[in-house]
Amino acid sequence: MTSLTVQQVNANLFIGHAMKSTYKLAVFLFIAILPSLGYSESILKLGEGVNLFAINGKEIPKGSGFLSTKSEFSLPDSGTNQILVSYTADIKNGDSYELEESELSVIKFAASDQQITLSAPSISSTKQLEAFSTHLNWSLTTSDNTPVSYKVNRLPLEGFRIGVDYEQKLSEFNRTSAEAAIPPAEAIAPPVEPIDAHDTEQAVILKMLQHWYKLASPETREKFKASL
């Protein structure tokens, strides 16, 4: 086995340390410039009884909406966001209580690296729920209880909601002149998965590739696949 001099060992240790330091610096710089590139995130918190079905035209995973137990969601910090929601109220009917759901609401608002909470007024009767579905008087506030301005419309939907393609419904809605609609030209990038400073080099690269792949058009994706 070839022996190494003290100088060679020290040199190898120095190079290894330098490479690790360079990588950590690269990760730090990448994380630091994310906000300036529009990749930072805001957090949407759901109040009691609020059901979230889609974010920026994309349906959230199954087990969400009425059946979801998750109350916090990431939003891309790109200015305007659009969400599809409803509210479930516990309505007293005689000696028992029944769960009744409001009409679907499309809400458009601006977020900028902040925590936002969406909640509904206290509802205890069918009449109050019907009034809420008409007026859509949601409450949208920041962590310091500052009101957030928003636009809202009902999503036209008839019959049962089981099996509804919310992405298609929102695509149709966004081609209208409704206040809460977002034209296709203003489509918002999907949320970015946060990058942890402790991720390995390959994990960071993977997250970056996944992010840019989501942003690419179908044609660009096919060209990318063909180039591999």
Results as ranks from 00 to 15, higher is better:
134 T>N: 14
77 D>T: 06
225 K>N: 15
181 A>L: 03
9 V>P: 00
38 G>F: 01
146 T>L: 05
185 A>G: 06
213 Y>N: 13
78 S>C: 06
7 Q>F: 00
188 I>S: 01
33 I>D: 09
121 P>Y: 11
63 G>P: 07
158 E>Q: 09
82 Q>E: 15
212 W>M: 08
21 S>E: 11
84 L>Y: 06
176 T>G: 13
215 L>Y: 06
61 P>N: 01
171 S>N: 15
170 L>N: 05
1 M>Y: 04
210 Q>D: 14
95 D>G: 13
154 R>Q: 13
75 L>G: 03
84 L>C: 09
219 E>H: 11
37 L>F: 02
168 Q>C: 01
87 Y>L: 05
63 G>D: 04
46 L>T: 06
170 L>G: 07
108 K>G: 05
89 A>P: 05
34 L>V: 07
161 R>H: 14
149 S>H: 14
78 S>D: 03
215 L>A: 13
104 L>N: 14
146 T>C: 07
216 A>E: 09
35 P>S: 01
106 V>Q: 08
105 S>D: 12
198 H>W: 03
174 N>R: 11
103 E>C: 12
41 E>W: 01
157 L>P: 05
220 T>K: 08
184 P>G: 01
226 A>E: 14
179 E>H: 15
159 G>C: 00
224 F>M: 04
29 L>W: 13
213 Y>L: 04
199 D>F: 15
92 K>N: 12
112 S>Y: 04
60 I>C: 02
76 P>S: 13
43 I>C: 08
49 G>R: 15
6 V>S: 08
54 A>G: 10
68 S>A: 12
209 L>K: 06
30 F>L: 15
26 A>N: 05
223 K>E: 15
119 S>F: 11
153 N>E: 09
